[in-house]
């Protein structure tokens, strides 16, 4: 029983991390139709901001964490201003290629300017200790991760539902050109969406660093691939779908690790992706996107 609870917590922690990153991807996608593969580099830059903060002598996690979150938001807004705004009216594929280009350029810059080798960021080592709640030994990091992700998602939902800018963003996710005709500045709506996705990436960077204890230039790549899959599962453009997809992926990852005999460990990703492929055959548009009746247009 203890083991099951522990694995359940693991799954929730993984899932919430995927959900956090997927939510950032979905937020930008829902407004701009842009699959921002450079989101991983926003996470990496937030991670390196922590490394640099430690280098210049800021050692307190209470200072380093806000620096990472602010750096995530700032880098996301810079990416939008420098790379994505000029191609905003170009076809979707141009945006996708731009995102991939930004990702490669930033990875190379981090390699050249800092190091291709992993750098230790031991600022959150305290979080890896175990605490006891009744008979259960629980990792402090996992608990904190769950609480912070729940708060971040709750805060985002409150912002989107109850603020004027949030209302504008929600309107823009479905009818962007109409929102502009209502006099709402496209630049402001898009920059806010990028800043929010950057904030979420910064929070994700903190927890990935806390788990790994080090950073390298490809730091954000793998989490973004997972988050991309989470978005596909939940249905692209659906914020709720991104969270649900992330959580499902977390549970799937942990279930496969737990249930798969050790000698088949190499098949972990293959099995996970096969299950996801099966899911998409059943619901090609994802779990939370409304099924569209194509009728004769299918031909």
């Amino acid at each position: 029983m203890d083991y099951a609870i522990q694995q359940g917590l693991n799954a929730l922690a993984f899932g919430s991390e995927y959900a956090l990153i997927a939510l950032g991807l979905a937020l930008v996608y829902s407004i701009m139709n842009l699959m921002n593969f450079a989101h991983g580099e926003i996470i990496a830059c937030a991670g390196y901001s922590m490394y640099l903060a430690i280098l210049i002598g800021i050692g307190s996690p209470w200072l380093v964490a806000p620096i990472a979150i602010a750096a995530g938001a700032l880098v996301a807004v810079l990416f939008e201003r420098i790379a994505f705004r000029p191609v905003r009216h170009a076809p979707t594929t141009t945006g996708l290629l731009t995102a991939l280009g930004v990702s490669i350029v930033v990875q190379n810059l981090l390699t050249l300017l800092i190091s291709p080798r992993p750098r230790a960021v031991p600022v959150f080592s305290e979080l890896s200790r175990t605490i006891f709640i009744g008979p259960y030994a629980i990792s402090l990091l996992q608990l904190l991760e769950l609480a912070v992700v729940a708060l971040a998602i709750g805060g985002l939902v409150l912002f989107l539902k109850h603020s004027t800018l949030g209302l504008a963003i929600r309107a823009a996710t479905r009818e962007f050109s109409t929102v502009r005709l209502m006099g709402i500045r496209a630049n402001r709506v898009i920059a806010t969406a990028f800043a929010l996705s950057g904030l979420l990436a910064g929070i994700a960077a903190i927890f990935i660093i806390a788990r790994r204890g080090s950073i390298d230039p490809t730091f954000g790549f793998q989490p973004v691939i997972k988050a991309f899959i989470a978005c596909v599962i939940g249905g692209f453009g659906s914020l709720g779908g991104a969270v649900l997809g992330g959580m499902l992926l977390g549970f799937l990852d942990v279930a496969i690790i737990v249930l798969l005999p050790q000698e088949y460990g190499g098949l972990r990703d293959a099995i996970a992706y096969s299950i996801i492929a099966g899911l998409l055959v059943w619901r090609p548009e994802g779990l939370l996107t409304r099924r569209i009746e194509l009728g004769d247009k299918e031909i």
Binding site: T164, L167, G183, I184
Partner: peptide, 13 residues
């Protein structure tokens, strides 16, 4: 968005 929110978007500007 709800009917009311649609009108609220119109009022923002």
């Amino acid at each position: 968005l709800t009917v009311r929110q649609n009108v609220e978007v119109g009022l923002i500007t």
